[in-house]
């Protein structure tokens, strides 16, 4: 009798588990087809030359070719600068519309803008900046005519490091706003009141309570911004036409280029990108473990 009840119960549990798994099946299918299998192909093909023979040459080139090393350095630099810039700007904006005292409609406006802007990339974004801050862009001309300032004469170049960083910032800081606004909402009013009640100043509240509580979210979001910029290709390509040598553009040139056609090297460079992101994520996990030890 007991056995029957148990087996009936087990049957019920496994049936319900089976249904739950069906719900996530499309995700796993998608992940296998478009993440896992391409990654394996990437890994395997990075050890092949143009004739399909096994080689270590592609991997060795990653450490010996100056243009590849420079590409990684430039990508890391742009990603780090825009991640930090986006994190700071996004955090301040999120702060002002959540715990700051700005009028409530400002929050809806900023969040809606951020939702759109964080996904605005590629050719349309490049075109938007070319038509505003390009050599004959609307704002460039406006500065020249109204203030007598030629920003290009002053050293600005939309098609260089500063310009590309500025363009990346357009989708970086809105992403930070979208991530940080709910995190800032999670700060309880009572924590601030309790700290004030115990004699703390606003600065002490932020240093000892709010920032430590937010640190895991800030770190996570900054790493996300770094990855977001590190993997960007279309925006940089559309803006500079491949003239700026970041890794993604170099990978593209190796895989589908006419002059630099060496898919094996392209795959190896992509593997290098995966490796750098893995190091970033490992660093993040370590920091997160340090900053989140008070969480369940």
């Amino acid at each position: 009798m007991t056995q029957n009840v148990l087996s009936a119960f087990k049957g019920k549990v496994s049936a319900s588990n089976y249904k739950n798994w069906i719900g996530v099946a499309p995700f796993f299918l998608f992940a296998i087809l478009f993440i896992f299998l391409p990654s394996i192909r990437l890994f395997v093909d990075s050890f092949k030359d143009n004739n399909g023979h096994f080689t270590f040459a592609n991997i060795l080139q990653l450490f010996s070719e100056p243009y590849i090393l420079n590409a990684y350095a430039l990508s890391i630099k742009i990603s780090a600068v825009t991640a930090l810039g986006g994190a700071i700007l996004g955090f301040l904006l999120a702060y002002s519309v959540t715990v700051g005292n700005l009028p409530k409609p400002m929050r809806s406006i900023l969040i809606t803008f951020s939702g759109v802007a964080s996904n605005f990339a590629g050719v349309p974004l490049a075109f938007a900046f070319v038509s505003t801050l390009g050599r004959t862009g609307f704002i460039t001309i406006l500065f020249k005519d109204v203030f007598g300032l030629d920003i290009y004469q002053s050293g600005f170049n939309l098609y260089g490091f500063a310009g590309l960083s500025l363009v990346y910032m357009y989708f970086q800081f809105p992403l930070m706003v979208l991530i940080m606004a709910p995190a800032l909402d999670g700060l309880k009013k009572e924590w601030r009141e309790a700290s004030e009640n115990l004699g703390a100043s606003a600065m002490q509240y932020w240093i000892y309570i709010a920032l430590p509580v937010l640190l895991p979210s800030i770190l996570g979001a900054t790493i996300l911004l770094f990855g977001n910029a590190f993997g960007a290709y279309a925006t940089a390509y559309a803006l500079t036409g491949g003239r700026i040598g970041i890794v993604t553009i170099q990978v593209g040139a190796q895989i589908r280029g006419d002059v630099l056609h060496n898919p094996g090297l392209g795959y190896a460079m992509a593997m290098g990108m995966v490796f750098i992101m893995a190091i970033s994520l490992a660093g993040y996990s370590w920091l997160q473990a340090k900053t989140e030890r008070w969480l369940k």
Partner: peptide, 27 residues
């Protein structure tokens, strides 16, 4: 003036000892 809140309002990033000592530390 000391206050005890309905929702406890303990600082989640601090241990019990750190919570108790917070007011003295900022002073």
């Amino acid at each position: 003036v000391g206050m005890v809140f309905q929702s406890y309002a303990l600082f989640p990033n601090m241990t019990v000892a750190q919570n108790i000592g917070f007011g003295l530390r900022v002073r």
